[in-house]
Design a protein around this nucleic acid. Structure first.
Lengths: 337, 337
DNA sequence: CTGAAAGCGCTAACAC
DNA sequence: GTGTTAGCGCTTTCAG
């Protein structure tokens, strides 16, 4: 760690060249109008390099009233999904020359409020508010003071644009894939809570069955705790049925993980004896189960990226904009069907 | 989304009160020296609230030369571990009134260089450079221009302070735990790469055995691909041994996941017939395997937090400071031993 | 084509 | 106790 070298300012560059700061500023920011001769431009860039000049973002922001900063407030940074949202948002922001200011509230409303405040003080150009599971949220009051877009959640009044997963389509895809593989007795182990994910995925499951002309067999539709144990228990029961399913669509990958155990314990093989599809595409589960799990991906990266797009594209003019945009949940084929 | 209201400046607060900006500035920043009478202070705060005044961070930074910004550059934000580092760093930073500027380079050196540049322009007070697996790294040249601390990695020359997991101690703990449960034939499925994790964990394994007076049986020490399949294969072989182990320490949780399969496939129970311990404490695996996996945690949050501490505590005076500080890897007991 | 000059909103000596 | 006065480093209008 070397001590910070004395800062070189734009004035230094200018005087070293015998130019004014204006000229230097113009060439550095590549203003289209100013027609500065190429030789001058070159001299400026050379001097910049030679002197190791680096613009001071605080000064630039203050003068130009643009910070190129986007805020991202998320509940729990350690959630397996938060990383995806951060990655998606950050990649897109980076391409547009923006940086992400991230705060994870750990579910604490006070922190959340404070986070919005801090971000406002830092003049972020917009805020992404993201949750780890698809649901309705209540935003801090100050959200009204800055373009805010919701990722994986929505507000009751529809005040904010939002991007959410298309759960129904995801459920349909999963089920359809099983049907396409020749299965007619397709069971569904749903999440046992009354949330958008459960409601949507089930609707998709039923739609796929209908479309295929297969009647929904109520004994094949169950729900359980959204854990491996939950999946194990329900899958066991299903397999014990007098007329058991040949395929199971699990409400999430963790449940599928448990279902694998139930199937294997019975000496059955995946996918030969029972085919399985999960939901969420949690790489660590889906990519390492044996055989690898075919599942439906939650489009976190895309939602994050789209949210950044919305915030950066014509920042204010477009607002208010599409509320509740559904993003496709693609099927990720691996080896369990 | 409401349009941004016209900004209220400190001058507005001052003039509304018939005070000078200095006075307002002093009470807002709570300067200890200025003895401003309580009534005046109260009036200031009231006006601030009433007018909805919010300081402009860019202006403050420019004038005070402090940004309260810490940079975090990580390779892959989607890695299951990145979230932990972010969470640990962000929580600690937040407590100290600092915000995190995060960039994930996705392993691209150009992005990494650019990230350091951007952060320098933004006058971050320090940078955390974090990797997803413990190893040696090469930093961008500009890292020398700002206090930089390494998380989960280290540089060859020892130019930067760094925090890394104590792999040896972790391996020792895991093995010791198995020995304490009565096992003498403890196998070790190591990662098959020549990296600090593999080297350290193995050293710890051997040390624990020695300390217990158990001789290391070379047939029980194998290594495999760091995946579930790798764990499955090696565990199977171990279990097929004429004199098989009664416990297996797996180089990471993913391998343990595969080992579970091998054990179950053989009709053996965990932990009654074979006890297992993993490494990494990947919640999604360890917390959902059946039975839940006892494993050793990689101290990501703590490393992140310690790094922030180092950067914020007497920022420059302490540098250069402890290189290669080893952080304990605690045993997380669940149900596989 | 280039420069002078007036800020952006805040901090911090230093004076009163 | 409070105000005056310079900046912090850059942008941008307006002259020339």
């Amino acid at each position: 760690m070397t001590r910070e070298t004395a800062r070189v300012t734009m004035g230094d560059v200018a005087s070293q060249l015998g130019l004014s700061r204006t000229t230097v500023s113009f060439v550095l920011s590549g203003r289209p109008d100013a027609n500065i001769p190429q030789p001058t431009r070159d001299r400026v860039w050379d001097a910049v390099r030679e002197l190791g000049y680096r613009p001071n973002a605080a000064a630039t922001s203050l003068a130009s009233r643009r910070t190129n900063l986007i805020g991202l407030v998320t509940e729990i940074a350690t959630s397996p999904f938060a990383g995806e949202i951060i990655a998606g948002a950050q990649a897109r922001a980076w391409n547009k020359g923006k940086l992400l200011l991230i705060v994870s509230s750990e579910g604490d409303t006070d922190i959340e409020d404070a986070a919005f405040e801090m971000m406002l003080e830092r003049q972020v150009e917009g805020i992404l508010y993201a949750t780890t599971w698809h649901r309705e949220v209540q935003l801090p009051a100050s959200a009204h003071e800055v373009p805010t877009v919701l990722v994986n959640c929505f507000d009751a009044r529809g005040d904010y644009p939002s991007f959410v997963p298309d759960e129904v389509e995801g459920g349909r895809l999963a089920t359809e894939h099983l049907i396409a593989a020749g299965h007619r007795r397709v069971a569904f182990i749903n999440l046992d809570q009354d949330i958008p994910a459960a409601i949507g995925r089930r609707a998709g499951y039923e739609r796929a069955l209908e479309e295929a002309g297969v009647e929904v067999d109520p004994t094949l539709v169950v729900s359980g705790h959204a854990t491996a144990d939950g999946g194990y228990d329900r899958a066991r029961e299903l397999l014990n049925l007098p007329h058991p399913p040949t395929a199971i669509f699990c409400g999430n990958d963790r449940m599928a993980m448990g279902a694998y155990d139930a199937v294997k314990e019975r000496g059955m093989r995946i996918p030969q004896d029972v085919a399985l599809v999960g939901f969420d595409n949690q790489e660590i589960i889906a990519g390492y189960l044996r055989p690898k799990l075919t599942t439906v991906a939650l489009p976190f990266q895309e939602m994050g990226a789209r949210a950044v797009d919305l915030l950066t594209a014509n920042p204010t003019a477009t607002f208010p904009s599409p509320v509740g945009v559904q993003i496709a949940c693609p099927l990720v084929q691996r080896a369990s069907v």
